[in-house]
Amino acid sequence: MTAPLADRETVHAGCIAIGEAGILIRGASGSGKSTMAREMVRQARAEGLFSGIVSDDRTRLEAAHGRLVARPVTTIAGYREVRGIGIVRASFEAAAVIRLVIDLSEDAPERHPEGAESQVRLCGVLLRRIRAQTGAPLLDLALGSLSGVYDAVVTL
């Protein structure tokens, strides 16, 4: 059964899976989404965690049973852009349930973000969100946010 159109969309974002959690990484073209995704996956693997890239550049989102499921766009599944090299073929995960959204920006985020800034609604599903400057080391913060360790920081 296919979800209604209001419950699905394709977004300009990459998606990774770490453990059981999908992390959607959004940002403008050239903001470092792909680089951040590769670095977070590399760091997670070095720490002995399951991790993989679901999608690069464009991600298909669909609400299912109160969760947001991310999948690669079929025509570009398994392809990644590496700056200075071009498009390369790579392994990928078929899907992930999104538990965190990271929004990248060239500018530093608010030092004390409003509570509303710590959440975002996609396809009708409310998700935790972190705003971060391009290049920020995010694996520990992302993992802590998913486990509740950084709730006070993320929801100030």
Results as ranks from 00 to 15, higher is better:
residue 119 Q to G: 12
residue 50 F to S: 14
residue 96 A to C: 05
residue 89 R to G: 09
residue 113 P to T: 04
residue 134 T to M: 08
residue 82 V to Q: 02
residue 90 A to L: 08
residue 131 R to L: 10
residue 73 V to G: 03
residue 56 D to Q: 05
residue 34 S to I: 07
residue 30 G to P: 10
residue 115 G to Y: 13
residue 154 V to L: 07
residue 81 E to Q: 04
residue 98 I to N: 08
residue 14 G to Y: 04
residue 156 L to E: 13
residue 135 G to P: 02
residue 76 I to S: 07
residue 52 G to C: 01
residue 36 M to C: 14
residue 52 G to P: 10
residue 74 T to S: 15
residue 82 V to H: 00
residue 109 P to K: 12
residue 130 I to C: 02
residue 130 I to D: 00
residue 105 S to W: 04
residue 61 L to G: 01
residue 99 R to L: 06
residue 98 I to C: 06
residue 153 V to P: 05
residue 75 T to C: 09
residue 64 A to D: 14
residue 21 A to F: 02
residue 140 D to P: 06
residue 76 I to T: 11
residue 39 E to V: 09
residue 102 I to E: 05
residue 102 I to V: 10
residue 9 E to R: 15
residue 150 Y to Q: 11
residue 143 L to G: 03
residue 101 V to L: 08
residue 148 G to C: 04
residue 146 L to W: 01
residue 22 G to N: 09
residue 18 I to A: 01
residue 29 S to M: 05
residue 20 E to S: 12
residue 33 K to A: 03
residue 45 R to T: 11
residue 7 D to R: 12
residue 123 C to F: 01
residue 31 S to W: 02
residue 149 V to W: 11
residue 80 R to N: 10
residue 114 E to N: 13
residue 52 G to N: 09
residue 50 F to I: 10
residue 142 A to T: 05
residue 42 R to H: 12
residue 76 I to D: 08
residue 153 V to S: 13
